[in-house]
């Protein structure tokens, strides 16, 4: 759990997992996104894909029961579900590039309300970490982002335009943070849900772009 107000990392991941529809092939990126495969979403059938060629994995392995040959995108030991399959890296990205991934869930440093996002290079850095994010962001049917609402120093991460080099342009359709669930609308973010105990004023104060609020604003949906 981070030091910021609002929801835990697993709760934020749970909320995005509730967006997954029956039969979707879902790719989870490094970091918070990998927590989505722990969420109990009832009878909804999801096929989790990891960029390293694992199709049909399940929750993280219990301590002491890890298979050293089996990791997800974050290098964490996961479990396989019945019907799982393994492919090599070029085939794994063939699946991605050919548009078979219904949604990819990625972490980010910044998301802009025009749907651009940045997650591979910090301000002023020479190097970066792209991993599979550019392939996924360009080719998945949908891109969801999961992130802390602000930087460690309290600066906004949801902003009008990205300040650092982008990973892809105009692709993000949902952003879940410790403060709420958002949709980039172009010139503003629409807040779909708000975290328990958080006010709209607090969200606006910590967001670097306009935040639109519907007449009835539901509270962030949590796991049972």
């Amino acid at each position: 759990m981070s030091g910021t107000k609002g929801l835990s990392r697993q709760q934020i991941a749970d909320r995005l997992a509730f967006e997954f529809q029956d039969g979707w092939i879902v790719n989870l990126g490094v970091g918070m996104p990998t927590l989505c495969s722990n969420t109990d979403i009832g009878d909804t059938q999801i096929i989790y894909h990891s960029e390293n060629g694992v199709i049909g994995y399940g929750p993280l392995a219990e301590p002491g029961k890890e298979d050293p040959h089996l990791v997800n995108a974050g290098g964490q030991n996961v479990t396989l579900r019945p019907g799982a399959a393994i492919v090599h890296h070029a085939d794994s990205f063939a699946i991605i590039r050919s548009g078979k991934i219904d949604v990819t869930v990625l972490g980010a440093y910044e998301v802009a309300c025009n749907g651009d996002f940045a997650n591979w290079k910090m301000a002023g850095a020479k190097g970066g970490g792209i991993g599979g994010a550019m392939d996924l962001a360009a080719c998945a049917k949908r891109v969801f982002v999961i992130m802390e609402h602000t930087t460690r120093s309290g600066g906004p991460r949801l902003i009008a335009r990205c300040n650092i080099p982008v990973t892809a342009r105009g692709v993000v359709t949902r952003v879940a943070t410790n403060l709420g669930l958002f949709e980039p609308l172009g010139e503003a973010f629409l807040m779909h849900e708000i975290a328990p105990g958080i006010t709209v004023e607090e969200v606006r104060a910590q967001t670097g772009a306009e935040v639109r609020v519907p007449d009835r604003l539901p509270t962030f949906r949590l796991a049972r």
Binding site: E51, M134, A138
Partner: peptide, 23 residues
């Protein structure tokens, strides 16, 4: 990008000199 890296290697092993990708 990771998929581009994998495909550049695959192409080299498949006798394909270059390709186009959206990544």
């Amino acid at each position: 990008p990771q998929g581009t890296l994998a495909e550049r290697l695959r192409a080299a092993g498949a006798g394909i000199p270059a390709f186009y990708t959206p990544a």
